[in-house]
Design a protein around this nucleic acid. Structure first.
Lengths: 352, 352
DNA sequence: CCCTACTGGGACTTTTTTTGACCCATTAAA
DNA sequence: TTTAATGGGTCAAAAAAAGTCCCAGTAGGG
């Protein structure tokens, strides 16, 4: 309470503080993830003049936060501790804490974690989201459970940011759904394997060809191997998935303009591993495949960790995660602010 | 703990924050005490260019902290709340909190309160010290007690800053010592009366001519009235006094160069209502008068509130307040830093 | 009653700082 | 060995800040 009071005073009397703080924080964050980072590449990344950046680097160096060497810039232990530890404080200062509370009320989920920054402006935010998601994921893990993961960049970030401390024993990681052809790094199978490796858990994959007909899928269901994996998938008690915007996802699957117009007519805004949702959270279309039976998932999965960022995904997030008290939602500041705006809530704090 | 952590991070990543914060805070504080304050008079006070000040005022106005009108600048309710409420937070940010702890260990007193700012650079600090002293004073008051106060600017500030909420009943305010001719506003008698008025308490004064001989004082002791007041003074359980530097005080009492050389030879550095202390806290001289018997005061007075500011008084403060576990010490940042420096402790945080 | 000496706001010029664009020696990789 | 990075430094242009002055209005003193 005293802390929040202090923050409010601080923002009142030094209104340029969030800007200053974020500028440097983003710089440090970038260095953390891209070390050893060169001055020129940093300048290019932030679209800053070289001199401007240099001045920032000078102050950071004076503060003992970065190490400037010939081979590049890296964080000192102090800088690393800062990047890793300042997040909750930053959230407080930026009012993200209050925003999380608002979103919690609005979306009626179990937990909301808003990561500082805008994914569309700084891709490091994705890694931060991965870090936040990984933290929540670890908290949800219990021995002998099945964890289902979907594809996508966000889930890949979670996999990347998971520490490789071992998880509780007996965990099995499976893809939430098979064969939804994406770039290999972002495929559910691939991510499931990566997550399993980090957790030192076992995994089972579901390799299916893309774009199968309904009949072909039903035939595959007869296969012993596939049926057993499907059973495993549907016994998952934790699900980690990202969210796509409907049109974008359809297009990435190679849908024609006609199909997209159909989707739009149905009101599809969000997509989760092949299922398309309208604004009211109803499934209006899906890509034929095998995997989680989404319809009765509510009864079986204990924790769903949803991770999505970028203001473009605001509508999709609202559509997908509304009213699921088992959901943990990880998103970025950009998406969070957009959601607030869509809901007509004024988020006074400024976005930098 | 989390708060302090946050502060440390904040200072690391935005090292210019204390400067920014203090600049504005001092401005607000000045406006608070001098409202309605004019732009030009503010600029003159802070020795700032008019434009510089104007820009600060603009941002403060944008933040809704000040009210800029033709008759002058004043604080909005928000600004007032900030000036009154930000102090503990400011102390944390400036590291005054840590400094208080250090001084507590160093001086072995009951409590230390360091007021942000340097009295020698900004006289508003005196009023802040008064506010801090007044707060402590009120905490020490109990019904039917006698409160003794000394003279001096610092004690006058306490009197000024006392709210006029009534105090516990039956309190009597007396001067700690009679007739130590100063400017009337800073005389102990005067301050005792002002304090009493604020506390809605009764008071008894001890009017004595200046510079009486020892014999004359002994004669006065025979006087019923004077004797009764002396008894009252020596039954005081709370004592509020300031500290003077020895030489300065002697000079103000009109001492000749010869006398001052004598004082210096005796090692006198500090002065408290007519008693001169050397660096080891021993009384090495005094101005003849009547009042508190300082020698056995330790046994009778429960709480001594010592208030002094300005780096010039550092030595005097050390001399006077060392090793008195009943003492509450109120001082300014300037004096505090000087004391730390004298003690060889590095106060890393910067003074602005 | 007026007059004066303030006030805040605005405009203009000078000074300082900031910014962008180079160049250079060094170094790590190719 | 070559190449393409790096960090560090310099210098001129541009932008921002600061100092100065002036103006209209108002409050307080005479």
């Amino acid at each position: 309470m005293g802390l929040i009071l202090g923050e409010d005073y601080l923002r009142l009397i030094v209104p340029e503080l969030p800007e200053l703080l974020l500028k440097r924080y983003r710089l440090l964050r970038r260095i953390y993830y891209a070390a050893p980072a060169g001055r020129r590449s940093l300048a290019a990344y932030f679209k800053l003049g070289e001199k401007v950046l240099r001045r920032e680097l000078d102050t950071l160096r004076d503060q003992g936060l970065i190490h400037v060497e010939q081979r590049g810039i890296s964080l000192t232990p102090a800088g690393e501790a800062l990047v890793l530890g300042i997040t909750p404080y930053l959230k407080l200062l930026l009012g993200l804490d209050a925003m999380e509370k608002e979103l919690l009320k609005l979306l009626k989920v179990k937990r909301v974690s808003v990561v500082p920054g805008d994914l569309e402006k700084d891709e490091m935010v994705l890694l931060e989201m991965g870090r936040a998601g990984a933290k929540i994921l670890r908290e949800c893990l219990k021995p002998e459970m099945v964890l289902a993961v979907s594809g996508g960049r966000s889930c890949a970030a979670v996999a990347d940011m998971l520490s490789d401390l071992p998880a509780p024993p007996g965990i099995t990681v499976v893809p939430a759904r098979g064969g939804l052809g994406e770039e290999v790094d972002y495929q559910a199978n691939n991510i499931a394997a990566r997550v399993a490796r980090k957790l030192k858990a076992s995994y089972r994959l579901l390799h299916l060809p893309d774009s199968l007909s309904q009949e072909a899928l039903e035939m595959l269901l007869q296969e012993e191997k596939i049926a057993s994996i499907l059973e495993l998938i549907n016994s998952a008690s934790v699900l980690l998935h990202g969210i796509g915007t409907a049109v974008d996802m359809a297009r990435r699957r190679g849908a024609g303009e006609e199909e997209i117009r159909m989707l739009e007519a149905k009101g599809a805004v969000g997509e989760v591993f092949g299922f398309f949702f309208n604004g009211r959270g109803e499934i209006v279309d899906y890509i034929p495949s095998l995997g989680l039976y989404l319809e009765d998932m509510n009864n079986r999965v204990d924790n769903v960790i949803v991770i999505a960022g970028g203001s473009a995904k605001a509508e999709a997030i609202i559509a997908v995660v509304g009213n699921h008290p088992r959901d943990h939602l990880v998103l970025d500041e950009g998406a969070a602010r957009k959601i607030m705006a869509l809901a007509g809530i004024d988020a006074q704090a400024l976005s930098v």
